[in-house]
Design a binder for these strands. Sequence first.
DNA 1: CCGATAATTAGACAGCCGTCTAATTAAAGG
DNA 2: CCTTTAATTAGACGGCTGTCTAATTATCGG
Lengths: 95, 95
Amino acid sequence: MAQNQVFKALADPTRREILRLLGKGEMTAGQLAGRFDMTKPSMSHHFAVLKEADLVSTRREGQQIFYALNATVMQEMAAWLWDLFRDGAKGRKKP
Amino acid sequence: MAQNQVFKALADPTRREILRLLGKGEMTAGQLAGRFDMTKPSMSHHFAVLKEADLVSTRREGQQIFYALNATVMQEMAAWLWDLFRDGAKGRKKP
DNA sequence: CCGATAATTAGACAGCCGTCTAATTAAAGG
DNA sequence: CCTTTAATTAGACGGCTGTCTAATTATCGG
């Protein structure tokens, strides 16, 4: 399942910041890269990881490629958090 | 900030499974270790990472150490997810 | 077709991460 | 005190990860 890729993708602060920026609206690869003190190839690598995890989607427009946040992020994360506490009374539950 | 440590801790599937088990109630280190096909030292390492990220708390009782899920997990993750889509002040940076 | 621009791919490399075995600390109990 | 059990710490090691430079692909405008 993709869950592991999602969490690994979120483990890097640069990628989380990318997602945060995309939360405001889609951006081109170049625009995103301009926000970070890092080479474009390095940014491209992060984009690939995010895309592989299905956290972002892409759209080409001429020479530029627009990245957008994938809405399923919320659902996957929320589901995981929910499952964490779902059947658990944390203290002492009867057998 | 502890945010980075939290996400790094969640990047490993073994640690996520530990958290899931603890969601049902506290367990001793030995009980937890018994659930995984891994040596105790390796498990101890994972416990340390989770504790460092403040995702779990510990309590000693005799020879045994009980681990419990820390409730702030939900809050931190929920806050992050919220911020992702909740467009705060645009140019704002953390001081 | 050419040159310029946007973006990715290829390959290298240091540093981190997860795992193991061996050794160590801590507590209980005869 | 000595032994046993629970758990962690120390140190080593292979593999993964993030970064870079150099090269490559894709697209547009003239």
